[in-house]
Design a protein around this nucleic acid. Structure first.
Length: 567
RNA sequence: UGCUCCGUGGUGUAAUUGGCAACACGUCUGACUCUGGAUCAGAAGAGUUCAGGUUCGAGCCCUGACGGAGCAACCA
């Protein structure tokens, strides 16, 4: 039949990344009964950013690809930092990306009981002990990166005493920080994480889910791997900084396992983007200090920020697909993200006319009071999007940048004596300009050729430039927010001793009021996306009101003209 | 200084059991165009951090340097 037709050959993946290779191998060898089960484990202490999207795509993607499942599990073991506000936003963002954890919404706090039992079990087996020392004493005994630690004086107290103390810790009998439970492993290990790690600490803060039921809470290392185990996770995918934790992860699993099943931790590289910061702490500071308007400020690399900026889930997934997964610490160029969103928006957004910096044009030989309806194609990339009618009359607005009285060569726009096409309407010839006292153009005059209306007898006459325009009489006023990168340095947090905010880009937001857009845009709804022809992609902001649209610029169109002029 | 991980065009990634270093973004040409967009055609750009070794043959294996990152929170 149509054997030679493979129109999607570009999408056929011929290679697999190292994570896929590991998983494929495990499956081939029948480990864990040939199951694949992953999990996405956010801590509910902040909003998700595009780096999390990379993890989400891998966690859910691997499960999808190999016919497995992916759980959503909140890693909520530290009530002092976590909150339900974050739980809700995290769920919303994952759903927005298009992933589904079905009924598998779990919390590490679901396992506090089992974790407690496991800790008690370790104590009974002589593998854990209560340490009465202060944080400082414990830290001093821990040794350094080059020197082994020394054992705690409480390391060998009796099982009964340990049990008694541990129960009393949870009954609130002791102050926070007065005692901890530690695993008894090896104070001389070259891996600091194996030097009798703390596994439970006393915290008297109420937990957002378990209230004041518990006075002791497990540490990350004592909760994460075990939660994986309880859920039957087969592949625990995380970022590179947890590589050093893997021996400890495995140690706990060894103590827990009762048969051949065991989860495997695999670490991949984190996503870094040029011209931004990605750590939750730094993002939180930007919000807290009012440098941005909130977590969903369109300049933020958060998923809610990107959403508000006009990014689509597809473009983010495509970007993640393009950058891949390795073990190399990389810094990815935002221009690739911008490429991904342009590629997507080009296919899906309708074209419209919007004039950001209006300059009035009067067509002197066009009848006063006359209005024509001009038909325009909504999207040349997708004819299903049809056409629309746009009013045209004697007075219009064009872009200030599209007029120059004394232009350089290769300026194919409005300038005295030169013909230019008003897209979808007529070819006009500039006849003059009126300037204000400062010498700036205030009003431009031209004449039109009635024969050149699109579809008309002279319509195919060659002119070098085509401009977008809006009828002055019918234009809708809009606010437009032009966003640019938040930092002017490629790697703002990559400089020792320099605060990233030294590199804040003062032009990261420019608000334009009194922009003129075509009447079809009067009643746009938030998050509706458009291509403002010749300018870029824009997305209606949440601040949009009936008849008073507000647009965020997602990304500009490629602009070879402005590039030429930079040199 | 100890341990762990990592070093392939400007950037991000590929290279099946060792077999003439591939792709994407970016850059630069040109064509086409009622978006200086899109599309199409093409070009430049690395000899794989370095030095040895094994081999008929090494980006892939071995040794040693050099460079980068992570690890000493009662954070995750």
């Amino acid at each position: 039949m149509n054997s030679e037709i493979t129109n999607d050959k570009d999408d056929l993946k011929t290679t697999q990344n190292f994570v896929e290779a590991f998983i494929a191998e495990d499956l081939r060898e029948g480990r864990n009964d040939g199951r694949i089960h992953t999990r996405f484990p956010p801590e509910p202490n902040g909003y998700l950013h595009i780096g999390h999207a990379k993890a989400i795509c891998l966690d859910f993607g691997m499960a999808q690809q190999y016919g497995g499942k992916c759980n959503l599990r909140f890693d909520d073991t530290n009530p002092t930092k976590e909150d339900v506000e974050y739980v809700d936003s995290i769920k919303e963002d994952i759903q927005w990306l298009g992933f589904d954890w079905e009924n598998r919404e779990f919390y590490a706090s679901d396992y506090f009981g089992k974790l407690w039992d496991f800790a008690v079990d370790l104590i009974k087996r002589g593998l854990a002990y209560v340490d009465d020392q202060s944080a400082e004493e414990i830290s001093n005994q821990k040794g350094t990166i080059t020197q082994p630690g020394i054992e705690s004086p409480f390391r060998s107290r009796s099982i009964d005493e340990n049990l008694d103390l541990f129960y009393r810790m949870n009954e609130g009998e002791f102050d926070e920080a007065s005692r901890v439970l530690r695993a008894k492993i090896d104070m001389a290990s070259p891996n600091m994480h194996m030097r009798d790690p703390i596994i439970y600490r006393i915290l008297k803060t109420a937990h957002h889910r378990t209230g004041d039921k518990w006075k002791v809470y497990p540490m990350y290392d004592f909760a994460h791997g075990q939660s994986d185990y309880f859920e039957g996770i087969t592949h625990s995918l995380c970022t590179l900084e947890f590589e050093i934790h893997r021996p400890l992860y495995d140690w706990f699993i060894d103590q827990l396992k009762t048969d051949d099943y065991r989860p495997r931790q695999i670490e991949f590289n984190r996503l870094n983007l040029t011209y931004t910061v990605m750590s939750k702490r730094k993002l939180l500071e930007l919000v807290r200090d009012g440098i941005v308007s909130g977590w969903d400020d369109p300049r933020m690399p958060t998923l809610c920020g990107l959403r508000r900026r006009g990014y689509t889930p597809e473009s983010i997934k495509r970007f993640v697909d393009l950058i891949g997964y390795t073990k190399v610490e990389a810094i990815n160029d935002v221009s690739l993200l911008e490429y991904a969103v342009r590629e997507d928006l080009n296919k899906r957004t309708p074209r419209v006319f919007g004039v950001l910096n209006p300059l009035r044009v009067v067509i002197e030989n066009y009848p006063e009071g006359k209005t024509e309806e001009v038909e325009l194609i909504n999207n040349p990339e997708d004819e299903n999007q049809g056409t629309r009618k746009v009013p045209f009359c004697r007075e219009l607005f064009i872009e200030q940048d599209d007029f120059m009285e004394n232009p350089p060569s290769k300026f194919f726009r409005m300038t005295p004596g030169q013909e230019v096409r008003l897209k979808g309407a007529y070819i006009v010839k500039c006849t003059g300009v009126k300037k204000n006292s400062a010498g700036e153009p205030e009003e431009v005059y031209c004449t039109y050729d009635p024969e050149t209306r699109s579809g008309g007898p002279q319509a195919n006459r060659k002119v070098k430039g085509t401009l977008h325009w809006v009828s002055a009489q019918h234009a809708v006023d809009a606010e437009v927010r032009l966003y640019d990168r938040l930092f002017s340095d490629e790697d703002p947090s990559g400089h020792k001793d320099i605060d990233p905010r030294e590199f804040l880009n003062p032009e990261s937001l420019r608000v334009l009021k009194g922009c003129k857009v075509e009447p079809s845009l009067a009643d746009v709804k938030p998050l509706e996306k458009f291509q403002f022809q010749r300018l870029g992609y824009f997305c209606a902001d949440y601040d949009t009101m009936q008849g008073a649209p507000v647009f965020n610029r997602t990304v500009g169109l490629k602009d070879t003209w402005s590039k030429m002029n930079k040199e």
